[in-house]
Design a binder for these strands. Structure first.
Lengths: 94, 94
DNA sequence: TGGTTCATTGCGCATTTTAGCAATAATCCA
DNA sequence: TGGATTATTGCTAAAATGCGCAATGAACCA
């Protein structure tokens, strides 16, 4: 990677379908990281790295609870803003 | 790429510093594509392909004017929304 | 301490993305 | 038509990403 700005980090985080799905799985609130691998059909290591990316971008946050790590959206408005963005770019003409 | 949603397309488009810069260069309005290669120090082909990506994501639009192609943001609010997003994710705690 | 569960990291491999050169296309004008 | 300018596309090498396995770490409990 060349350089990284806040925005490019966010872009990278959003640029993969798996990570988008992970974000959406957090829509209803905090969840244990352990639920994602089985639900998404990928290796736990992939989940871990994906969350690391999302976290670096500032999109999610985590806290440990014993042996588990609980993940949540960094901001409750996040998905709304993302929807807005998608709408903004999607309503082009027709 | 696995699949593509509106959001992942946007993510990909934003995920490269060069393309972010291109977007910002459009902040003040329409510009000729020909200005970008010299200004960004890359080959014109890179500019062309980068715009193609941004366009597929719905972030920019173009119109031909004779031999030139004039590019502009797909929506005037776009940069505001992106700033909002960056702020949203950036103000994490401290 | 040893066992269990969940998370992260090291590594190699496959896939995707990026960059530039050269060739081709598109448009205008003399 | 032929030349000039800008844009796009084909191709290849290089760089970045994505993936799973295996190993390691972290926290808990009996």
């Amino acid at each position: 990677m060349r350089e990284s700005t806040a925005l490019t980090l966010i872009g990278k985080a959003l640029s993969h379908p798996l990570r988008e799905r992970m974000l959406r799985l957090l829509a209803d609130g905090e969840r244990c990281g352990c639920e994602f691998a089985p639900e998404l059909g990928v290796d736990p290591s992939v989940v871990s790295r994906s969350f690391a990316l999302l976290e670096r971008a500032g999109l999610v946050q985590s806290r440990r609870e014993g042996v588990r790590v609980m993940w949540s959206l960094a901001d409750p408005e996040l998905l709304d803003v993302l929807e807005r963005l998608a709408t903004l770019t999607g309503e082009r003409v027709a």
